[in-house]
Simulated scan of single mutants.
Amino acid sequence: MTKNYYEAIKERRSVYNLTREATIPEERIREIVEYSLDHTPSAFNSQTGRVVMLFGKDHDDFWEMTKSSLKAIQPEERHKDTEEKLEGFRNSYGTALFFEDYDTIESLQSKFEAVKDNFPLWSYQSSGMLQYNVWTSLSAEGMGASLQHYIDPVEEEIKSKWNLPGKWKLMAQMPFGKPASPAGDKEIMEASSKLKVFGIN
């Protein structure tokens, strides 16, 4: 990682204008994802997060698949804007698909009956942390990314095409690549409207 932790947190942004280039080798991208999978917190250390990395033709196929699936269900006038957005994602370097393994979640629910309803919520929280860890780590290496949520139209087709387990639940997609332009300014709310502290002088 080329930046310290606080710099990485501050500079991680949604970057949509990406190129088909990378600032680091594919092997380094894989290391980042593996490290994030190993060290992201999860309930009972269940490690329910799963990631599928798509490069090259597989990356292109995913966004073409998403575009076709949405075209079938969207009004034509709305799909034009969507298609332009998806084409931008396809023109990035690669895509990370984030899943949660519901075989593991359901197993935990059967073992811990008293808190079984919490496991899906804990799973969502862990997935969010995993997505953030990958995103921030890529950003620290000079890569841009954004988080997308095209789920229902493509989930089953994804599992079929890449032969993924049926109990893997798709959570998000993260297209990434070298930024073609920097993200815009980010407005920060006043701390007093977000944070309350009690018990200290």
Results as ranks from 00 to 15, higher is better:
Gly166Trp: 14
His79Arg: 01
Gly166Ile: 15
Glu141Val: 10
Ser127Arg: 10
Ser126Asn: 06
Ile151Ala: 00
Ile105Glu: 02
Gln173Gly: 10
Glu34Asp: 13
Glu34Leu: 12
Glu155Cys: 01
Leu97Ala: 05
Gly144Pro: 03
Val52Gln: 03
Trp135Ala: 06
Asp103Gly: 13
Arg12His: 02
Trp63Leu: 07
Lys10Phe: 03
Tyr5Met: 08
Lys57Ser: 09
Ala8Trp: 03
Glu187Asp: 06
Ala72Val: 02
Thr40Leu: 01
Lys67Phe: 00
Pro165Leu: 14
Glu187Lys: 14
Leu195Ile: 15
Arg30His: 04
Arg30Tyr: 02
Met143Asn: 04
Asp38Glu: 15
Thr82Val: 10
Phe62Ile: 04
Lys196Glu: 01
Asp185Gln: 10
Lys116Ala: 15
Ile73Ser: 08
Lys57Trp: 00
Ser137Ile: 10
Ser92Asn: 09
Lys67Cys: 03
Lys196Arg: 02
Phe99His: 07
Glu83Asp: 11
Lys161Pro: 11
Pro175Trp: 00
Glu21Tyr: 05
Phe99Tyr: 11
Glu157Ile: 08
Pro25Lys: 08
Lys186Gly: 02
Gln131Ala: 14
Lys3His: 04
Val154Lys: 08
Leu170Val: 06
Asp58Ile: 02
Ile24Val: 07
Ser137Met: 13
Leu70Thr: 00
Pro165Ser: 13
Tyr93Arg: 02
Glu155Lys: 01
Ser127Asp: 14
Ser146Thr: 12
Ser36Arg: 05
Asp152Lys: 14
Leu138Phe: 13
Ser92His: 08
Asp103Lys: 15
Asn45Tyr: 12
Leu37Glu: 01
Thr95Pro: 11
Gln125Tyr: 15
Tyr150Ser: 05
Ala72Asn: 11
Ser68Lys: 14
Gly88Glu: 05
Ala191Gln: 07
Trp122Ser: 11
Ser123Asp: 10
His149Asn: 04
Gly144Asn: 04
Lys10Tyr: 05
Phe198Asp: 09
Gln148Ala: 07
Ser110Asn: 15
Pro41Arg: 00
Ala180Leu: 03
Glu7Gln: 14
Asp185Arg: 09
Glu31Lys: 05
Trp135Arg: 07
Asn201Ser: 13
Gln74Cys: 10
Asn163Leu: 12
Leu86Ala: 06
Ser107Leu: 13
Lys194Arg: 14
Leu37Lys: 01
Lys167Asn: 15
